[in-house]
Lab assay of single mutants.
Amino acid sequence: HNLTITQGKLFFHYNPKLCLSEIHKMEEVSGTKGRQERNDIALKTNGDQASCENELLKFSYIRTSFDKILLRWEPYWPPDFRDLLGFMLFYKEAPYQNVTEFDGQDACGSNSWTVVDIDPPLRSNDPKSQNHPGWLMRGLKPWTQYAIFVKTLVTFSDERRTYGAKSDIIYVQTDATNPSVPLDPISVSNSSSQIILKWKPPSDPNGNITHYLVFWERQAEDSELFELDYCLKGLKLPSRTWSPPFESEDSQKHNQSEYEDSAGECCSCPKTDSQILKELEESSFRKTFEDYLHNVVFVPRKTSSGTGAEDPRPSRKRRSLGDVGNVTVAVPTVAAFPNTSSTSVPTSPEEHRPFEKVVNKESLVISGLRHFTGYRIELQACNQDTPEERCSVAAYVSARTMPEAKADDIVGPVTHEIFENNVVHLMWQEPKEPNGLIVLYEVSYRRYGDEELHLCVSRKHFALERGCRLRGLSPGNYSVRIRATSLAGNGSWTEPTYFYVTDYLDVPSNIA
């Protein structure tokens, strides 16, 4: 807008934040220059609390790290170098490059900038070799853009010569660093050979998330399962459950009422301010606690030095998902009996873990797994792929695949051998790939016309006998059925096997 004052003059007093240069501009645009008398524009009460600059400061050096910015700028000295009290560095987070010096300023003089007072450097006698002032900004957020400017702080001049310097606002972004852990990993099994893994992005990506790394490792069953005799009275049979499938998407929606109208769909109840505040506090606490764990609990591995020492970490090797089922080394339970199943799973520490690289999504279907087997899954978020990966501390989750139908069934015939004193040795093959492992066998036998009897055969007993022995049988026709019990439950009964026990007292003698 054009402003013209045809008559009258300007009068400025007691404006401590208004620089004289701005008042002189007002004289020019209003056409009143030359009308004012000496005392109409006070030299001592206008701009006496402001830094009124008329020179431009330029930054000469900028260096960044993930949490620091090192700045240096060209030296500046007023005509009387004693008038320079120091520099004021202003900075704040700036997602967009549209910041002005006066953003967030209120009537009390406060604003949204963080201000650092910096002492002037030592003055050199040689004007050509003056030290460049600077400042190291610490405690910054990774991968965050900051708006920065600097200006001088000078003393009051009796001659009211307006001098000083100020830089333009520059924008500097800190470097990326390792992201925080992925949030809320959930693993479920939808079949006997697959596990579905879902997660949420890290709360602090500290860069642009480029991919996720998912490692999985087959877990050995508890050692007590191999040692305890679950045929003993009072000892509860062990059981394991597989990871249940995901709930429906509708039930997972946030901010939804727990109660549904019987007449149909209901609208979600909005969260109160107290609920939102509580969630923010919980989120802040979780982030602080995660940072504490990362800094205190997890110790970084030592990389190899120039002395030739090897990095103890196993090298990563990509495998196809079809090879995942046989990740671990199978060892027989008892070496003397080769027909026992290889369900003991000690994992070799030198073995390469299978892994998958996930790009542009937060889910993965891990296939080719062994049925009813526990897996430990390790999830890392990465925001750099080359020249070397920059990934987060791992988040861990466990899951067990679903049982395989008929995996616990005894394959092959049940054979028998009759000894003296009416002892019958029953023999059968253990299931080759049971659900988890076989903890015991149930032997059901009966003599024709009598009630059915049951015998429990422990895992250890089966390994020693290759089956079991029935003792003290009365003469007669017998039928026997056997079924295995694994961590997933009972298998199917075998087809009945028949044998006849004679009275050993009636056996004919070869003595003449």
Rank of each mutant, 00 (worst) to 15 (best):
D204V: 13
G207W: 02
I209G: 11
H211D: 00
V214M: 04
W216F: 13
E217F: 06
R218Y: 10
A220P: 13
A220Q: 14
D222V: 11
C231H: 03
K236Y: 15
P238Y: 08
P238L: 07
S239D: 10
T241N: 09
T241D: 06
S243V: 08
P244T: 07
P245G: 12
P245Q: 15
S248P: 09
S248V: 10
E249P: 04
D250P: 12
S251W: 02
N255K: 07
N255T: 11
N255E: 07
Y259T: 13
D261A: 12
D261K: 08
S262H: 07
A263F: 04
P270W: 07
T272S: 06
T272D: 08
D273C: 04
S274C: 15
K278A: 14
E279F: 04
E281W: 02
E282K: 04
S283H: 13
S283R: 12
S284C: 01
F285Q: 11
R286L: 06
K287C: 11
F289I: 10
F289D: 15
E290L: 13
E290C: 03
D291C: 08
D291N: 15
D291A: 10
N295K: 11
V296A: 13
F298I: 11
K302Q: 11
K302D: 15
S304A: 04
S305I: 05
T307S: 10
A309T: 03
E310N: 06
P312D: 14
R313V: 12
S315G: 13
K317C: 07
R319P: 09
R319Q: 12
S320P: 06
L321V: 10
G322D: 14
G322Y: 06
G322C: 09
G322F: 02
G322T: 10
G322L: 12
D323K: 02
D323R: 11
V324R: 11
G325I: 11
V327G: 08
V329S: 10
P332E: 15
V334L: 12
A336P: 11
P338K: 05
P338F: 11
N339A: 09
N339Q: 10
T340C: 05
S341V: 13
S342T: 15
T343Q: 07
T343M: 07
T343L: 07
V345T: 07
T347H: 12
P349L: 08
P349E: 00
P354T: 12
N360T: 12
E362Q: 13
E362M: 09
S363I: 10
I366A: 04
I366G: 00
S367L: 11
G368F: 07
H371R: 13
F372W: 07
T373D: 03
T373M: 08
R376P: 01
R376I: 13
I377S: 02
E378P: 01
L379Q: 01
L379R: 00
Q380V: 06
Q380M: 07
A381F: 01
Q384I: 06
D385G: 10
D385F: 10
D385Q: 11
P387W: 12
P387R: 07
E389D: 10
R390A: 04
R390Y: 03
S392G: 01
V393Q: 02
A394Y: 13
A395S: 12
Y396Q: 06
V397S: 11
V397G: 09
V397D: 03
S398N: 06
A399K: 13
A399G: 12
R400W: 10
T401A: 03
M402P: 07
E404V: 10
A405S: 10
A405H: 14
A407Q: 15
D409P: 00
D409A: 05
P413K: 12
V414M: 05
V414Q: 02
V414D: 00
E417G: 07
N421E: 15
V423Q: 07
H425G: 08
H425Y: 11
L426F: 03
Q429Y: 09
P434Q: 06
P434D: 00
G436P: 04
L437R: 14
I438V: 13
V439E: 07
E442P: 01
E442C: 12
S444Y: 14
R446A: 07
D450S: 14
D450T: 09
L453T: 08
L455F: 11
C456A: 02
V457Y: 05
S458A: 08
R459P: 05
R459Y: 08
R459F: 08
K460N: 15
L464M: 09
G467P: 01
R469K: 03
L470Q: 01
R471A: 15
P475N: 08
P475E: 05
P475R: 07
N477T: 03
N477L: 06
N477F: 05
S479D: 02
S479T: 15
R483W: 00
T485Y: 09
S486C: 01
L487M: 10
L487C: 13
A488V: 11
G491Q: 14
S492M: 11
S492I: 12
T494G: 00
T494R: 02
E495C: 05
T497C: 15
Y500H: 13
V501F: 08
V501K: 03
V501A: 04
D503F: 03
D503Y: 09
Y504W: 09
L505Q: 07
D506T: 15
